[in-house]
Design a protein around this nucleic acid. Structure first.
Lengths: 344, 344
DNA sequence: CAAGTCCTCCAAAACGTTTTGGCATTGTCT
DNA sequence: AGACAATGCCAAAACGTTTTGGAGGACTTG
């Protein structure tokens, strides 16, 4: 039922050998086929609606033109889609297909998934996590080109790409500093993840960059949720000398900060400026006023991962290249929650 | 570099022929291999860490153990993930791998994508849309087992699964009716999509089911957004005899309704009960009070699609089976936005 | 005119499996 | 004892490509 026409049928119809058809179709170098014949073959192939069997050519070439994309949790996060989309687009550009697996964070499922990918002879593997994490690279990834997406490993054995948390936080702070704010609270998160440390460092760097001291009393860590944001913001805003600006670890915490501000009768942005992080459009776009925040480069990281993987595959023959770590820009997206501080 | 060990190496190491290895590994019926030999082969294979090349077996068997998952826009929607996750899990159960393609809604990309999938000899294709839509099945899907996911086609040529919009809306209305509400406004959407008609019918059916008349004046359509919800709700809530309950087309519109209620000084749920649709956790979980809403069965639809596709593949040899359309339950998820109506 | 060089094409092998048909060997019936 | 069936194994073909190593002819060169 499925495409019964193979290269043989094309050859017969064109009155040449399969060799010639293959050469013509793949436009092999060395001019092994007459231009006129080539055109004829091409025409016949198109006419018959011939589509080469990639399984067969993959078998012959020892490469499948597919790459595996394995990730922990694809579902819960709205970021996953963007990463996948970026990977998708880049893959298409390279003529690659993406085989997706998700492990639900289960190590055994992960091992099985990688095994399955290897059996299907994927040319390379993207190992992705849905939140920026530090991970242990599974051994099964050793024998094949692979890159880490939104994750780094301490052993630095693989190329990796992550968001530039540091730069993003600094940009957010700069946004407030540039507007004239001097007392700026940092509604931080308390998990031991790279983002926490990175963003805190960015905050400090921003103050330093403006020649201002960093006051630890203005950093309050809480659970990374709306409620956590509410609590931390409340604490900061009831300080004797309350901050005029708040930089929140993420948009959900910023949402909590909005509620705290509302309860305290503080108008945003007139009385209080707020900057978030993540650019969760569902939140930042719907809050009133709309939230200025920092965008995570998920799409770009997806693109980067595939491109880098492609390079990795290409030079798999050479000795292994230096696995570099990349951090991609987190641009600020300006909306309506930042204004100059009120005149006190 | 990659798994240099094939079935031949296993055969050599076990001192048998490749035939026997294959028979042993695939546990072929007809008792063509001694149990003892079988065990030895298995042991050797495990020892050598042998993993069969699925490209080769696929070539031989004319089936790849992969299925294509092609969808319009994977990125923007938080629903995509759940659908994919369901598909993923079901696929794993069947020993299938998912090759994902997205078309960005572009017909040409779609054609190319399907073409690529066919070249890779996928055993079947899931054609998914990220919002329940009515679509035209592309011709290129004709020759291969395929199912529609979150979409139906007028020609009814393929099995399809969609959410039971009608039932979901009826359940939502029932929630309000059961709480004692009688004047219930429907904040509807104005797009010509299946959900619009389906949910409206559900609303009418719910009234009918309670022996109540349906009052068209209490249905207001608006743009499907927070602002649209705000406008429509405002209109309904300023009616001479204002509704005590609101059923909103989706959670975003419900969010607008919340704002309208707040501006009118109506407390939810004491003065006004609200039910949404979609269960967008980012919204429904963060609204105060938390929103009672109806859940779209994306995960289940994903599972269903793969299972059905698997059946379709299995009986591809028989005549084509009757392509049935399925609508999956949209269960209500109760939170805190519904209470009995105020005593007037 | 002989020798070399292109140009165009093809036959055959190979990629790693699965499956068919058959060959010994052993056991079981008459 | 002879015929027959069952058991356990294997050789070889096949799946649809790509690539290697020529073959044959036409053309160029000295």
């Amino acid at each position: 039922m499925r495409s019964r026409i193979g290269i043989r049928e094309v050859a017969k119809a064109a009155g040449v050998s399969v060799t010639t058809v293959s050469h013509a179709l793949n436009d092999v170098q060395g001019a092994r086929v007459n231009e006129e014949t080539r055109q004829r073959v091409l025409a016949v192939a198109a006419d018959l609606n011939y589509a080469p069997n990639r399984l067969a050519s993959g078998l012959r070439n020892l490469q499948s033109q597919t790459i595996g994309f394995i990730s922990d949790e694809i579902s819960t996060t709205p970021f996953a889609g963007k990463m996948i989309l970026g990977a998708q687009h880049a893959a298409k550009k390279h003529g690659l297909l993406l085989i997706m697996i998700n492990t639900d964070g289960d190590a055994q499922a992960e091992a099985q998934g990688i095994q399955a990918l290897l059996q299907h002879q994927v040319d390379g593997i993207v190992y992705a996590t849905m939140y920026h994490r530090r991970i242990q690279v599974p051994d099964s990834l050793k024998g094949i080109p692979a890159v880490l997406l939104d994750a780094t490993s301490p052993e630095a054995s693989l190329p990796s790409v992550v968001p530039d948390e540091f730069g993003g936080a600094r940009a957010a702070m700069h946004e407030l500093l540039a507007a004239g704010h001097r007392r700026i609270g940092f509604v931080s998160n308390q998990d031991a993840i790279p983002a926490t440390a990175g963003r805190l460092d960015g905050v400090k760097a921003a103050f330093a960059g403006h020649g201002l001291p960093y006051d630890p009393a203005l950093t309050v860590a809480a659970e990374s949720s709306t409620d956590g944001g509410y609590t931390a913001a409340m604490q900061l805003l009831t300080l004797p000398a309350r901050p005029t600006g708040l930089f929140c670890f993420n948009d959900q915490m910023a949402m909590g900060a909005y509620r705290a501000a509302a309860e305290l009768g503080l108008k945003i942005p007139a009385d209080l400026s707020v900057v978030g992080f993540d650019n969760l459009e569902l939140i930042s776009g719907f809050l009133h006023p709309r939230l200025t925040t920092v965008q995570l480069p998920h799409y770009e990281m997806g693109v980067w991962a595939i491109n880098r993987l492609e390079e990795e595959i290409a030079r798999a023959k050479d000795g292994p290249h230096e696995p570099l770590r990349t951090a991609l820009d987190c641009p600020i997206v300006r909306r309506a929650s930042v204004a100059p501080p009120p005149l006190l």
